[in-house]
């Protein structure tokens, strides 16, 4: 009897939430469909194994030409030819970061719910921004190359739009989270909207803004590999040209140079960001 009374006080096991099994089921179904030959990309593990020799050939081609010995044997004689494209990539990244982050600053204030002047501007601005963000950097580069021909100009333009999307989004979310107390204080002191944003909001998010700008600069160095492929200037141009001639040893050297540049800039950037925030 006492045992019965004791168990009666125990709650019945709640029904398990269906969310987790449902999520796993959805994941498995989509994955299976995506892998299958009929509905998806046709993943074939056997082919990867039989193609192994192709990869080995790329890694060590057996060719005598110093430019095409293979990915594992970089051609250091090619180094001096990478300097100018690398510098161009660096210049493009600098210019695009400055322009992109400059434009993103006012945009972020328009698309944050804290500082947007009214709801129509807020939602309109957010809609435009989500379209800008939905277009990948390579697509901007393709369109701009079609518009003005190849060279660093369409590349910079593509990076600028890409940067506006990234920084405006990150910064507007930071602005959403600011302490609104100082805003109330500024209003109580008779400040107008612009003054309130400048003195009550901007100082709160400035370190984050600088950090996002540095982060964008890193992204731009990486992205320039990509946009160079479609003719928008920089190291990507050279990389893709060497790839098309199967000059694997030159490709290998470019990858190494790029790797060094990316890691160096990332290290400096992380150091600066730590000091800021």
């Amino acid at each position: 009897m006492t045992a019965g009374a004791a168990t009666a006080r125990r709650p019945t096991r709640p029904r398990r939430s269906p969310v987790v099994p449902l999520g796993i089921a959805i994941f498995l179904v989509i994955s299976w469909a995506s892998l299958s030959k009929d509905f998806g990309i046709g993943f074939d593990l056997g082919k990867l194994i039989t193609n192994w020799s192709n990869l080995v050939t790329v890694l060590v081609t057996g060719s005598d030409s110093p430019a095409r010995r293979g990915l594992l044997i970089p051609n250091f004689a090619f180094l001096d030819q990478t300097f100018e494209p690398m510098l161009e990539t660096f210049r493009m990244a600098v210019i695009a970061s400055v322009l992109g982050c400059g434009v993103a600053l006012p945009v972020a204030f328009v698309v944050s719910r804290v500082t947007s002047p009214n709801l129509a501007t807020l939602f309109g601005g957010r809609a435009v921004l989500s379209v800008v963000r939905a277009i990948p950097d390579i697509l901007y580069a393709l369109v701009f190359v079609a518009a003005v021909g190849i060279g660093p100009l369409p590349g910079i333009a593509a990076l600028v739009l890409f940067n506006v999307g990234v920084v405006a989004k990150l910064l507007s979310e930071t602005i959403d989270g600011v302490d609104v107390g100082p805003i109330e204080a500024a209003r109580a002191g008779g400040a107008n909207r612009t003054q309130t944003v400048r003195w009550a909001v901007l100082p709160q998010v400035l370190p984050n803004y600088v950090a996002y700008s540095l982060y964008t600069f890193e992204l731009n160095i990486r992205a320039s590999t990509v946009i160079g492929i479609v003719g928008a200037g920089g190291i990507g141009n050279l990389l893709f040209a060497q790839y098309q001639f199967f000059n694997w040893s030159n490709v290998s050297l470019i990858i190494i140079v790029l790797f060094v540049l990316v890691v160096a800039i990332e290290t400096i950037s992380i150091f600066l960001r730590r000091r800021l925030v």
Binding site: I41, G42, F43, D44, K47, L48, N51, W52, N54, L55, T57, V58, L71, T225, V226, I229, L239, Y243, W248, V251, S252, I255, L258
Partner: peptide
């Protein structure tokens, strides 16, 4: 993009895989 051209395209051939 580098992983694709240097490793994955030789391994899996051109295409989505």
């Amino acid at each position: 993009i580098i992983l694709a051209i240097a490793i994955m395209i030789p391994l899996a051939g051109l295409g989505p895989v």
